[in-house]
Structure formats: C-alpha cells, structure tokens
C-alpha cells in the first residue's frame, strides 16, 4: 500500500472544481490522469465531470480537453485521433505520441453514447475510452440509466408502493465491448488505486481501442456519506457486485480474486438508494451476483466458489497488482 507514494505529485485535474464533497469520480479522474500524464488529448461527454470542471472562464483540466455534446465523446475522440494521424503523416506535427482519451459517464456510454462508442471501437481508432460509472444520471439529479443496478431507487425509478426501484438488471458494458474484439478492456475502482493506475497505463500503451469501466461511487446519488465513497467502492468489489477484471485478446483475467465473498447485503445496507429493499429482492440480487461471479471465474479458468461462499469481514487493505 505504500506504492501510491511512487506516483507523481502533478495534478492534472486542478482543485477548485465544483464536484460534490467526497465525489468518487473526482478521485478516479485524479488517479487516471496521474497514470496518463501530459501527452494526451481528452474528449469529454456532457455530464457531472464536464459541468463541475469547466465553467467559463475556468477549467480544471491541465491537458488539452474538449467538450462537445452528450452522446459523442467516442466520435469526437475518433476525430481527434484521425486529425492527429493525418497531420503526423503529412509531417505537419512531430512524431511524438499523443494518446487520445474519451471520457463519459454511464449515461453517455451505455445509453445515449452507445452507438458512437460502438462505431469508434469497431473502426479501431487508437484511443482509450473511459466510462466513469456512477450508475445513474447524476448531473441531472439522479435518474435511472441502463447502468443503474437492480433495486436502486432513483428519481425516475422511485421506491413506490407498487414499483420498487430499478426493475432491470445493470447493462453489461464489458460484454458489449468484448463483442467488438478490441485489444484491451478492464474494470477498475478508485478504491484500488494501484490496480486502476496499472490498467490505465496498459490501456494507454496498447495500440488500438481500449476500454476502461470505472465504478465511481456518488454520495448524493447513492445516498451515502461523503467519507464512505472509497469504502463503498471496496465493498462493491468484495461482494462481487463489481468484479475487477481484464479482457485481453479474448481472455479474461480476474484482477482480484476472493476465496469467499462478502454478503451483498452488507454493500446494499450502506446505501440510501437501496433503503427498504425487501428480502425477496435482496435474495434475487445475491443469487444473480453469485451466478455472475461464478461465470466470470469459469471464464477466467479459475475454480468456482465452494458452497460456503461468504465471509464476514472484508480484506482490510488493498492488494496492489
């Protein structure tokens, strides 16, 4: 855990941004850009991160950064990459590498931006796409997206008398991305900094499209205390709700394996958005999370969990990869 000390002191997301106190996405973005460094260009979708970081005449970004619209970060990044490539070819700019990075939230990725993302992945642009998934449309005040987890209450899937929160299962972006056969995709969490940084570096170094899906806990959207962001992110991983893994050349590798998982209930109980969820739904979610975890382990060529699959306490500190 002392490895974080080796990271650069340079801040690429300048403080003074208007993110919520305890914003998980801000933590993730800070880490991501420590790994990416200066020689990049960023295309950012409309969303929380865009709004909190770029009120004219101020910007938090230390690298060249552009915001155009909500659904097209991948297409704008495609254009930047094509432009730089053409200019380099024609000798109009020098040959030093400039990595193009697209960033968007879960709405900008899994919903409105899915087509642009699919197009850019399929065309094979040399860029890194990062989805900061806070599991709802937080910028507009917490409405459900296709990435909102089952059972979570949002402003458009409230926990009412008849309907109880989100009725559909979270869209699996990693599988959608995998169907494009891109060289590299991974999930990451700001609660595991060294793992996250390693994946960002890998994604940036690989030639061709790479995809990172980062779970970014959101205090107001999830109904958690500001100080709990990192802890909740860790629980998401340790319960199997958000497994950390990589997809490289068709192979799946678990970044963090557990002999036993923490019961999902522990993760859900800490969050206002799951308040009042009944036992039946809880059981259903637990079962499905387990199934997905087992499936992932099979795909990674690992032995499935044994029947006594739960443990009481979490791993106290992170394992660095």
């Amino acid at each position: 855990m002392f490895a974080v000390k080796t990271l650069t002191d340079r801040e690429y997301l300048a403080p003074g941004h208007r993110g919520c106190s305890g914003c998980g996405q801000a933590v993730a973005v800070r880490m991501v850009h420590k790994a990416l460094g200066q020689r990049i260009v960023v295309a950012c979708a409309t969303g929380c991160m865009e709004v909190i970081s770029s009120p004219f005449p101020q910007s938090s970004w230390e690298m060249p950064w552009i915001h155009v619209a909500f659904e097209n970060a991948a297409a704008v990044a495609s254009g930047i990459e094509a432009g730089l490539k053409a200019l380099r070819h024609k000798g109009k700019i020098d040959n030093r590498k400039i990595k193009v990075v697209a960033m968007a939230g879960d709405g900008g990725t899994a919903d409105i931006g899915l087509q642009a993302l699919s197009g850019a992945l399929e065309r094979g642009h040399d860029f890194l796409y990062i989805c900061y998934d806070n599991e709802a449309y937080m910028n507009t005040g917490v409405q459900r997206s296709s990435s909102t987890p089952y059972g979570a209450s949002t402003m458009t899937t409230p926990a009412g008398r008849i309907q109880k929160g989100q009725a559909t299962w979270k869209k699996n972006m990693m599988e959608i991305v995998a169907a494009h056969h891109i060289p590299y995709a991974a999930t990451a969490s700001p609660s595991y900094p060294m793992d996250l940084l390693g994946k960002v570096k890998k994604g940036a170094e690989i030639k061709g499209p790479a995809y990172l899906h980062i779970l970014s806990p959101c205090p107001p959207g999830w109904g958690i205390e500001a100080e709990d962001t990192i802890g909740l992110g860790r629980l998401a991983v340790e319960t199997g709700a958000f497994p950390l893994y990589e997809q490289e050349e068709g192979k799946i590798r678990l970044s963090l394996d557990f002999d036993k998982l923490i019961p999902l209930e522990k993760y859900l109980k800490g969050q206002g958005r799951f308040r009042g969820i009944d036992q039946e739904r809880m059981d259903y979610m637990q079962e499905r999370v387990l199934e997905m975890w087992q499936d992932l382990k099979r795909k990674a060529g690992l032995r499935e969990l044994r029947p006594s699959r739960f443990r009481k306490e979490g791993v106290k500190w992170i394992r660095t990869s």
């Binding site: 300048a14 403080p15 003074g16 970081s53 005449p57 101020q58 910007s59 938090s60 970004w61 230390e62």
Partner: peptide, 9 residues
Amino acid sequence: VEPGSTRKN
C-alpha cells in the same frame, strides 16, 4: 479557457 484555472475557485 486556460488550463487549470479553477485553482482560482
């Protein structure tokens, strides 16, 4: 906009 200028905020 100039980079890193939210430092004023």
